[in-house]
């Protein structure tokens, strides 16, 4: 039975120094579904996403209030190492960012840093991850070439393969198609629909059609506040809030 509150954002507020970026966000994200975060630029959707694996810790002068729980355990539990936490959560960034390494080494990076170096295990992981990311057929003959030889869309799928190599529970995607052309975008979208069989996916997107095409739930954020959260169909067909309607109908962006 999939859990309804797989990611539980519990009255979460977030500050960059003196500036408050998130105001008392409260939402439950269900297991093995795609949840889209939409909203105009600067509304805090990326901030919320990046808090789900504490990537914002890398920035100086941040603080938070409230809590986020992954599968019941708090992100801010002082007994938990932030490193082991991040291993439960894969992340795909807006701009594809493979390392200056071979395709193979890119995929197995998360295993290498965990000290898992068994040749057979790594080979299996590479094939499985690249197949999941729908990239295997295209790159299987040049696994040991530089990742920079791939096209933009292929590089982004490589990043997805890299993010899922260690089989995390959650996959966070921060506008994964923003730097891609329409064909590559469609490929990634269909990949997202396939990946939700295995992962709980949270995706930040500017593209509302993308949200309708590949998400099950949609949350609309505006000015750091969660305005409306529901099934994608409900949000786009019968928005309950005025701002939501105004946004999805394109009256402001």
């Amino acid at each position: 039975m999939p859990r309804e509150d797989f990611i539980a954002v519990d009255h979460f507020s977030f500050f960059y120094g003196a500036k408050q970026a998130l105001f008392d966000i409260h939402m439950d994200i269900p297991e093995r579904q795609v949840t889209a975060l939409i909203g105009p630029s600067g509304c805090g959707k990326s901030t919320l996403l990046r808090n789900m694996n504490r990537m914002n810790d890398l920035i100086d002068g941040v603080r938070h209030a409230g809590d986020i729980r992954l599968n019941g355990s708090s992100l801010y539990d002082p007994k938990i190492e932030v490193i082991s936490l991040r291993k439960r959560v894969g992340m795909v960034f807006q701009k594809y960012n493979p390392f200056a390494k071979t395709i193979y080494e890119n995929v197995v990076f998360s295993l290498r840093v965990a000290g898992r170096n068994g040749r057979r295990e790594l080979d299996e992981v590479v094939e499985r991850s690249l197949r999941s990311a729908a990239l295997w057929e295209e790159v299987k003959d040049r696994l040991h070439e530089s990742a920079f030889g791939l096209s933009g869309g292929q590089q982004q799928r490589l990043c997805i393969a890299r993010a899922i190599a260690n089989q995390p529970e959650i996959l966070l995607m921060d506008e994964p198609c923003a730097a891609l052309d329409p064909t590559a975008t469609l490929k990634i979208e269909s990949l997202i629909r396939d990946l939700k069989e295995q992962f709980t996916i949270v995706i930040v997107t500017h593209n509302m059609e993308q949200a309708t095409r590949c998400s099950d739930r949609t949350a609309f954020l505006y000015m750091g506040r969660l305005i409306e959260y529901g099934s994608t169909r409900q949000i786009f067909e019968t928005p309950r809030q005025e701002e939501t309607e105004a946004y999805i109908s394109g009256r402001f962006s």
């Binding site: 694996n53 990537m55 890398l58 991040r86 291993k87 992340m91 960034f93 701009k95 960012n97 840093v113």
Partner: peptide, 23 residues
Amino acid sequence: VPKTLTAAAAALGASRWQVVRSI
């Protein structure tokens, strides 16, 4: 060194030293 690379490595569960050493 671009923050996108270090962030990606950190997101993959690399420790600070591992990020420094391998990226």
